[in-house]
């Protein structure tokens, strides 16, 4: 009881710290300003661009990162820790530095930029640039969450499935993936949300077309807080609404 009495005020402090800024943004503008913001084509298109590109980045990491997460959860091999550290690098480094690093690789004469240039894809100031920036900085959220999800699936369930005649691939899709689904979807939501909000890496590789965070920065530096607040409030509101809906759907049992 004494412990709870000690922890409760401490918990309240951190909860207020987390909630108050969001609350102040949401209540910082009037309903009429919300409606005006929704009529501002630049605001709407920047929000849609952020949501859309972060969604595609998440889909790409679902395709490429979930298999990696499964391997990391199930396999034992030398230097596995190094591989896990590689996955975590984007979380550890400053996001502006991540943007510079991506620029080195994806600029026209970079390691991969040259190859993509041949197939007609350029990354500087294009949606592709935004996409890879979002992928790079937010993929650890999805990969690590999926890895934890697969770890929670008892390997013996997979053995039993195989003893019933299922191939390893069939076992993965019918048993492991559905059982780890909650963690994978939660990781995808985290990645998507992180992607929508990504600024540092995006601003280096593609200032244009403007994503919502870049537009917020642009309006704040050019016109001040009053001009930045409506789009900020709208982005926060839309993000929270989407995440609540997906989380509720994911947590609903069939």
């Amino acid at each position: 009881m004494k412990l709870k009495a000690l922890f409760l005020p401490l918990s309240l402090v951190i909860l207020i710290f987390l909630f108050l800024p969001v609350f102040s943004i949401l209540t910082g503008i009037t309903p009429i300003q919300y409606i005006h913001s929704l009529k501002d084509r630049q605001i709407v298109s920047s929000i849609l661009l952020s949501i859309e590109l972060s969604f595609f980045a998440t889909i790409l990491v679902l395709i490429l990162g979930v298999p990696l997460a499964y391997l990391l959860a199930r396999s034992k091999f030398p230097f596995k820790g190094v591989l896990e550290a590689v996955v975590d690098i984007p979380v550890m480094i400053p996001h502006v530095a991540a943007g510079i690093a991506l620029l080195m690789v994806f600029q026209a004469n970079g390691y991969l930029g040259e190859f993509f240039k041949k197939v007609g894809i350029s990354f500087l100031d294009t949606p592709y640039g935004i996409l890879i920036a979002m992928m790079f900085v937010s993929s650890p959220f999805l990969i690590n969450s999926a890895k934890e999800g697969f770890k929670k699936v008892d390997e013996r369930v997979e053995f039993v499935a195989r003893s019933l005649g299922a191939s390893p691939l069939h076992t993965f899709f019918k048993i492991s993936l559905p059982l780890a689904r909650k963690d994978i979807v939660n990781g995808a939501i985290m990645m998507w949300g992180r992607g929508i909000g990504e600024f540092g890496a995006v601003v280096i590789i593609a200032y244009h077309p403007m994503t919502a965070p870049v537009l917020i920065y642009d309006r704040f530096t050019s016109f001040g807080l009053n001009y930045a607040l409506p789009i900020t409030a709208l982005v926060v509101l839309i993000s929270i609404a989407i995440f609540i809906v997906i989380r509720v759907l994911n947590n609903l049992e069939k």
């Binding site: 008892d154 039993v160 003893s163």
Partner: peptide
């Protein structure tokens, strides 16, 4: 021979039913 081609049924003590 791979597990799925052996034709050996295994029942664990905690059953390992597919919960989903």
């Amino acid at each position: 021979t791979p597990i799925e081609k052996r034709g050996i049924g295994l029942v664990y003590q905690d059953f390992m039913l597919f919960e989903h």
